[in-house]
Design a protein around this nucleic acid. Structure first.
Lengths: 354, 354
DNA sequence: CGCACAATTTAAAACGTTACAAATCGCCAC
DNA sequence: GTGGCGATTTGTAACGTTTTAAATTGTGCG
C-alpha cells in the first residue's frame, strides 16, 4: 500500500486543470508513475490485474501520452516525413500517395509531415537536414535517379526510408515501384495489335530511373515487332500540356508521322489528342493512344482512351507499411521491396452511346 | 569567469557524440546553459557581445534546438495541422493548397502535418482530437458549411484556425475564400454575352457554403438578364466525370436543352464537353462553357474553354500567413479574413493554329 | 525462524529546453 | 568604505515520459 501521506503531492490529484498525465493516473490508482508507465507498455513484470486496472483508468479519463515527452526521452519522433517534389502539384499525384501513406499509418503512433522541396536542385539538402536534426523516424520520397544521391546518403547513415522508384545502386534499399517497363511494353504492343505501324513514345523526363524503364519497354516492343517507331524529341512527360500539343501538331505536318502514341500520363494523353485533333485526326480512326491512368480524369473524355491503370494510393499504402517494417528493424529485403504489376484494364466507362 | 573545475561535468565537452545541444555551446563558450538559451532568443538582458558570440558558435557547430524539448517545456508544438478531405485526392487540390501553406511556413519554426479524414462523417472527431491532445498550434481545413460544427467547436475553444471557405455563423473567424458568387455571376454573364439563351449550372455539392454562393451568383446573372436558365438536377461538382457526361447527354435528348454551362471545375467542364460531343455538338458553335480553372489541365484541350482562374497555391499561402498571425495573437479580424477576387482572364494558350 | 528467491512495485535520474528567482559584478554616490 | 543600483549572468526547477537500479513484498524451504 502506498503511504497515504504521499497521496498529496504538489500538482497531484488536487489540480483538475490540463490534460491527464501519467501522474494523474498514478494519483487515482495509488500506484507510482513508473508502474503506470510500464503497465501501459504491457510490461510482463507488472501484474496482469494492475495492467488492466491502469488501462481502464486511462481509458476513462481519456489519457493519451504526451508526444513531446516521449520523443524527448526515447529519441523517437513518431514522425514520417514525405518529400514533396514540385512536379507533384499537378493532378493529385502527391495527394493520392499521401492518402495511401496516411492509411498505412492509421492506428499507429506515427504522424505524417510534409516537407515540400523548394530548392530547385535535388532535395539532398532537405534529406541531410532531416537526418542531422532527427526530424523524423523515416522518410519517403519519389522520382529516384539511377545513382540517387539521396539514397546513397540515407543508406550510408542507416536512416530508414522507402523510395517510390528504383535505383541502380549496388546497395539494395526499400522501394515500391510500378513496373513501367511492362507498362510501356504492353501499351506499345497494344498499339501494334490495333494495326498501328509507327508507334511513338513520349519519354520520361531525363535523369530518372523510371524514364529508362519506359524507354526500354517501348524499345523492346517495337524491336520484337520489327516495326517503325519514333521517340518524340523536344518534349517529355513533364512538359506543359501546351508544349506537347504543339509538338504533336508540328510533327504531323512533317513527313512520315507516327500513328500511335504511348503516353505515360493523363495530361500528356489529353494534350496529344488535342494536338491530333488540331490536325483533323480522330482517335481510333487515324491513330491510337494507350495511356497510363492514375485518376478518373480520362473517364470524362471522348473518344475512349485505352488505358493501363496505376493505383497511387495503393502505392502510398505499400510505402507506408514497408517503412514501418523497416523502422521496426526488418532487414529482410524481400518484404521491403515491391514491384507493382500494371493493371491491364480498360477504364470504367459510363453507359455506352448506342 | 567560469570556475575551471566546472568545465568538466558529466556529459560535458568530453562527449563528442550526438547532435549539439545548448550545453555543448555552454561548454565551448564557458557560459551557463541559461545564458546561451536567452542569447539565442535575443533577450535584451544579454549583452550584445555575448549574443553575437553565442550565435557564432551555434552556427559553427550546426546547432539547432531540439523540437521535442522546446515543445515539452513551452507547450507549443510548432506544428500546423491540415485536415485533408477525401474529395481532395483528385486534381491536385490538396497538394496545391499544401504547397502554398508550406511556402508561408517556410523559414518559420512550423512544420506541416497532414491529417487525412478517413471518417465519412464530418471530421469533427479529428478536430476534437487535435484540440484535446494539443497536437498542433493551429488548424487549417476546407469545405466549410454555413453552420460548420468544426468552426463552432474551435471558436468556443479559442483554438487558432483558418478555414478555406466562409460560414454563416454569428461569430466571425479567420478564413480565406474565393469569391464564388462573382465567379458564377461573371461566368454566366459571359455565357449570355456570347448569345446563349439558356445557361445551365452544375451546382456545388449540397451543404457547403460555397455551393450557396455559386447558386446565388448564377441566379443573379440570369435574373438580371431575364433569360431562361436551368440548374441541372441529379449531378453536382463532386459527381464522377462519367455521371456528369451521362447526365449532359441525357438532358440534350429531352426538349428545350440548355446551350451554355457554368462549370465550377475542370473535370466537370471536360465531362460536359464530352457529353455534348456525344450528341454531335461542338463547343463554341452550338454551345459555350465558362469554367473555373485551377490547373494547367484545360490548357491541353481543344477547343479552347473560356475560364476564370483560381490560384489554389496562393490560397494556401494566404491561409498559412493568416494562421501564423492568429497564432501570434492577432485578433484584428481585418487581417485575418481574405476574400479573393476571381481573376478574369483567359487561360494561357499555346500558339494558335493558323 | 530466517534466508534466498521470485514477483511486483518503486524511487531517482535523465532527455534538452525555458521560466523564475537569485547571484555576481562594476561603479557611483553618500 | 559602505550601500545601492543597473547591467549581466547564473543555478534550480520544471515540462511528462522512460530507463536503470533498487526496494518492497510474498513464498517456499532448510
Amino acid at each position: 500500500m502506498a503511504d497515504p501521506s504521499k497521496l498529496v503531492r504538489p500538482g497531484g490529484a488536487s489540480e483538475k486543470r490540463g490534460k491527464p498525465t501519467l501522474r494523474t493516473i498514478a494519483d487515482i490508482t495509488g500506484l507510482a508513475v513508473t508502474t503506470v508507465s510500464r503497465a501501459l507498455a504491457d510490461a510482463p513484470q507488472i501484474s496482469l490485474e494492475t495492467r488492466q486496472r491502469v488501462r481502464q483508468v486511462a481509458l476513462e479519463i481519456g489519457y493519451s501520452p504526451d508526444r513531446a515527452a516521449q520523443r524527448l526521452k526515447t529519441g523517437r519522433t513518431n514522425v514520417i516525413a514525405v518529400l514533396l517534389a514540385p512536379h507533384e502539384e499537378i493532378l493529385g499525384y502527391g495527394t493520392s500517395v499521401m492518402a495511401g501513406i496516411a492509411r498505412a499509418l492509421q492506428g499507429t503512433a506515427y504522424h505524417l509531415i510534409v516537407m515540400p522541396n523548394f530548392l530547385d536542385a535535388a532535395n539532398i539538402e532537405a534529406v541531410n537536414y532531416i537526418i542531422r536534426n532527427g526530424m523524423a523516424d523515416g522518410l519517403i520520397f519519389s522520382r529516384t535517379e539511377p545513382l540517387d544521391p539521396r539514397v546513397k546518403l540515407l543508406s550510408e547513415t542507416g536512416f530508414p526510408f522507402v523510395t517510390h522508384g528504383r535505383t541502380e545502386l549496388a546497395t539494395t534499399h526499400p522501394f515500391v515501384d510500378y513496373d513501367n517497363f511492362t507498362f510501356t511494353y504492353e501499351a506499345t504492343r497494344r498499339l501494334i495489335a490495333k494495326g498501328r505501324r509507327k508507334p511513338a513514345l513520349i519519354s520520361g523526363p531525363s535523369g530518372f530511373t523510371f524514364s529508362g524503364h519506359i524507354l526500354h519497354g517501348f524499345m523492346t516492343a517495337v524491336r520484337e515487332a520489327g516495326c517503325a517507331y519514333e521517340i518524340l524529341s523536344g518534349i517529355d512527360l513533364d512538359s506543359p500540356a501546351g508544349a506537347i500539343r504543339d509538338r504533336i501538331r508540328q510533327r504531323q505536318a512533317e513527313k512520315d508521322p507516327p500513328d500511335g502514341f504511348t503516353c505515360g500520363g493523363e495530361v500528356c494523353a489529353l494534350a496529344t489528342i488535342t494536338g491530333m485533333s488540331d490536325c483533323g485526326l480522330t482517335l481510333g480512326l487515324e491513330y491510337d493512344i494507350v495511356a497510363k491512368q492514375t485518376s478518373p480524369l480520362l473517364g470524362a473524355i471522348q473518344p475512349r482512351v485505352d488505358t493501363i491503370y496505376e493505383d497511387l494510393t495503393e502505392t502510398g499504402e505499400h510505402m507506408g507499411r514497408i517503412l514501418l517494417r523497416r523502422i521496426g528493424g526488418s532487414t529482410d529485403i524481400g518484404e521491403l521491396q515491391l514491384l507493382l504489376d500494371p493493371e491491364l484494364r480498360f477504364k470504367p466507362q459510363p453507359a455506352e452511346v448506342s
